[in-house]
Design a protein around this nucleic acid. Structure first.
Lengths: 325, 325
DNA sequence: TCTTAATGTGTAACCGGTTACATATCAAGG
DNA sequence: CCTTGATATGTAACCGGTTACACATTAAGA
């Protein structure tokens, strides 16, 4: 790889001039500019970002901290973040923390020492002291870390209500629910919204993590203890898929006997049999908005902390009945 | 963030001594060592990796180039790579190329200018000139770029044969197949293996990309034109899920009337109804092996190019019949 | 004609580490 | 007592960019 010094020599100018044409800063004569551009092309020069970082204290790198990319909610988010970052000349460093504080801490210092320009956090330790002292632009995604830190989340409360409304409207009279992990505030909101609207129609409820295995176990318990119900809302699509599988196993017809609504709108919902009706979060959009916000923060465009609530929509596939007119 | 200079001053030694204790290199008296360690602790010092990179021409960063993290095969791979990298003090930079040469090229120069130490490539342009001239340690994962570049792949040919064997053994007599995209060599091997064993029992075959929508279309066509068949092998699990969904829609009972085998062993297979029998690639293992290999290459442990073929296994869930004794 | 501002360019300091090299001390061996 | 090698430490060059600053030239305005 050529260095700026070689380019300078090749073009018969000083390194300062080369730097000026690279960055379109300061004064450069047309003549010098052409010579430099020719040299750059001939030597196939690309400036060393490490050297640049050192002086500028900015790396064009952003850190993406998530629990586990393997959880099907996250790839879309990562994709959105990477797309936007890339469009603005940033790259993203992927970090899976499994929600372990210690891992998180390790990453945080690694990220800091490599001078990332900002952080996107989709992890959930509101009490996490790691972030509080951190003097780095950051935005929380799908999680609320604490007041004072930017956040983008979707409207889980409305989503929960929407799920209940839909089920009721399609004729369900005995509702059930499988909630998500208790420590995820944004997920809890879904349950709150659902319960609020379901009222005394709610006949059964349990809780599960977001792994399929756990979800299956929770489903079985629910069917064992609360059956019959004719409408169920799962806190995410993975849980809904488990419910669906368990229903099939028990020869319960969906949606005739049991209507199912999931949450998230991940691709999986398209692939179940029957395809899953679900409350979709604008996942890609959330990633996009969060990243754009982070970039603004980095470039100091607007520094007042904000919280962004994105709307949620109903996607009717085939685990709910047609709307009654 | 404290600098080495501040630490040196605080400990009343020179920067060289601080550097020596940080790197456990050269001679340092016990006395000095303690003073430095005390200063490091007090100032909460962590060395600036950017500065270190500049001198050492090594960043402890590895670039991960994949078509699209959103494709459910890749998150597990990414996770494995990230895990191993992290255990060895490396971070990974995520790049989605959508298999577009141009995007790939852009990433490649970005990655080079930030001095990544190596590359893991899960993209498929064997004719891609970008990589040929690249003087960087790299290993191809699940794809074969060209001779001379390390590769880790699983044994698709055996996998295809295994699928056919299994179907035949479970009593299927009329086989069908949906192949993957033609340009993916490793995927083509699956088809070759399957066709080889299926022989004249093969009554229908078509091709699809790995998106669910396309797979569904392909399935429909196959059912329309080649039905009846009683055993089908799909080139990956997403396609198999589509087949399954289409079978349910047509009231074809699985596995009684139609046995289905997928390929990959992603989580999705667990979530379909009924759960999918599939040929599992050791995805995490492949990521692990590839990364360990890359790290060896980076540290110049063994530099002779190698190609690693990992074995594949049958995971019987419920879209195939019980084995006949 | 003299000032002054705009234009153009090079030198060198700087970013924060690593390490070659110079220098010093001290103990062991001849 | 002198030589030699091991131990210990500091100074400064270096990695490859960016930019403050000095300096030169030219054009415009008074």
């Amino acid at each position: 790889m050529a260095t700026i010094k070689q380019v300078a020599k090749h073009a018969n100018v000083s390194v300062a001039t080369v730097s000026r044409v690279m960055n379109k800063s300061g004064y450069v004569s047309e003549e010098a500019k052409e010579a430099v551009e020719k040299a750059i092309a001939e030597l196939n020069y690309a400036p060393n970002r490490v050297a640049r970082s050192l002086y500028k204290k900015s790396s064009n790198l952003i850190g993406l901290i998530m629990p586990d990319i393997t959880n099907p909610f996250f790839p879309q988010l990562a994709r959105a973040i990477e797309d936007v970052a890339n469009q603005h000349g940033y790259q993203v460093v992927l970090c899976n923390t499994d929600e372990q504080l210690e891992k998180e801490q390790t990453y945080l210092v690694a990220l800091q020492t490599m001078h990332v320009d900002g952080l996107i956090i989709t992890t959930n330790h509101s009490h996490n002291p790691n972030y509080e002292t951190l003097d780095l632009p950051m935005v929380a995604l799908d999680r609320i870390v604490k007041a004072g830190i930017d956040a983008v989340v979707s409207d889980g409360y409305e989503g929960g209500k929407l799920a209940a409304d839909t089920l009721l409207q399609r004729g369900a009279t005995r509702l059930a629910h499988i909630a998500g992990p208790d420590h995820l505030k944004t997920v809890k909101r879904r349950t709150e919204g659902f319960v609020e609207v379901a009222g005394d129609k709610l006949v059964g409820m349990t809780e599960s993590t977001f792994t399929f295995k756990d979800a299956l176990k929770a489903s079985q318990e629910l069917f064992d203890h609360a059956w019959p119900f004719d409408g169920i809302f799962a806190a995410n699509d993975v849980i809904a898929a488990a419910v669906l599988q368990e229903a099939v196993r028990r020869n319960i017809r969906v949606p005739e006997e049991l209507q199912v609504i999931g949450y998230d709108g991940i691709e999986l919902g398209e692939m179940t049999s029957p395809p899953l009706t679900t409350i979709v979060q604008p996942i890609y959009e959330m990633g996009r908005v969060a990243t754009e916000r982070l970039l603004d923060l980095i470039e100091k465009k607007d520094t007042r902390p904000r919280e962004m609530l994105l709307p949620v929509t109903l996607l009717e596939r085939q685990t709910t009945k047609r709307k009654e007119k």
